[in-house]
């Protein structure tokens, strides 16, 4: 049954994200960690229709798609632990995961997945007719020139390139609506791109739309723009100071807001109305940052589980299966953990 298969895919993607979260919290994964929690329905719905020879370019949240493309989870986890036996020999890290076997590449530079996928699509058109390329990016990336330029290029060169915009309404700590002109669909349509909007929290809707579109693209090479509303359940990156402040206004926010309050009243500067407006904006952002959280109506996994359970389906056994796989994964990494991630200081 398609619904259950899609659900299983989403559970797998989510479970791997949560494994990463655990290792990151323990300090075994260094630097930033941009989880893809909230994007699983888009990842599952699109990757379901991809096949060997298709290429994908990914952003700073690459793991759900890579997981569902079948990249070895042990290799990915070992990579993020900085190990020589990792997917990229410990050189790349979570924003720079590459699997040549799967023709999948990721980048931490916002918007860069567009031009890369245009090149992938050109190769598909010339060397592998019937194959396509997919670019995944957020709505924040829609304001990067390079992405808009690649839309123009894809239309001008008739490239089999599926642009998948994961719209979670946030560009880091900025509300995208505050810095984005016009409508994204109309913008893409302005390049002559066929466009469609889909509820990115509804995995069946994504799968159906992506299936139709990709099917057409394989027969008749041309680009397509898919706008999917998603959520950002674990904030821009794990430990995002904005959400921490929102959750612990006294402890985490005390220092920042002490400084803000001091300057709210300082002589010289803008008038009181402007100052209050700024302060209200900051407080509104803190409030907004708490809206997307797990076990909530913006969680695609939660929504799908609800639907399946109402239809009398057994979601629990799927979840238990996946949980067992993840336990094995974690064990397998722990057993032969050499130096570990963060200088080998932290036992897992």
């Amino acid at each position: 049954m398609v619904e259950l298969e899609l659900y299983k895919a989403m559970v797998r993607a989510r479970a791997f994200e949560l494994v990463l979260a655990e290792f990151w919290e323990a300090g075994a994964i260094s630097g930033e960690m941009h989880l893809g929690t909230g994007e699983e329905a888009v990842a599952a719905g699109v990757t379901r229709h991809l096949r060997s020879g298709d290429a994908v370019s990914l952003d700073h949240r690459p793991t759900p798609v890579l997981t569902l493309l079948g990249v070895d989870l042990q290799l990915m986890l070992a990579e993020m632990l900085g190990r020589e036996d990792g997917l990229c020999r410990g050189r790349g890290g979570h924003m720079h995961l590459f699997s040549k076997t799967h023709l999948a590449a990721s980048s931490g530079i916002v918007g860069s997945s567009g031009p890369l996928a245009a090149g992938f699509a050109l190769t598909a058109k010339l060397l592998r007719p019937g194959n396509i390329a997919v670019a995944f990016f957020g709505e924040g990336a829609m304001n990067q020139g390079m992405l808009m330029e690649s839309m123009n290029l894809a239309v001008a060169w008739k490239l089999p390139l599926l642009f998948v915009c994961k719209d979670n309404q946030w560009a880091i700590t900025t509300r995208s609506v505050d810095v984005t002109a016009g409508s994204l669909l109309e913008r893409a349509a302005g390049f002559g791109l066929p466009c469609q909007e889909v509820d990115g929290l509804d995995v069946m809707a994504v799968a159906e739309t992506a299936g139709d579109v990709i099917g057409q693209m394989r027969k008749n090479p041309q680009p397509f723009f898919l706008l999917a509303r998603t959520s950002r359940l674990d904030s821009h990156q794990m430990g995002d100071p904005m959400r921490r402040m929102a959750q612990h206004p006294v402890g985490e926010g005390g220092k920042t807001f002490g400084n803000v309050t001091k300057h709210l009243l300082a002589p010289r500067g803008s008038g009181p109305v402007t100052r209050i407006k700024s302060l209200m904006h900051l407080l509104a952002l803190l409030g907004d940052s708490r809206k997307d959280v797990r076990e909530h109506k913006t969680d695609p996994l939660f929504l799908t589980r609800q639907q399946l359970e109402q239809a009398g389906q057994d979601t629990e056994s799927i979840e238990q299966d996946v949980a067992r796989q993840m336990e094995q994964l974690v064990d397998s990494v722990q057993v032969d953990s050499p130096a570990g991630g963060a200088h080998g200081k932290h036992d897992l």
Binding site: T174, V179, M242, T256, H263, L282
Partner: peptide, 24 residues
Amino acid sequence: HMLRSAHYTRFGQQRVFPAPISES
């Protein structure tokens, strides 16, 4: 607005401009 929240509060939206991710 977040990174320089004190400046943003004191000088407001006419002096501190949060930008889209559009470096060029």
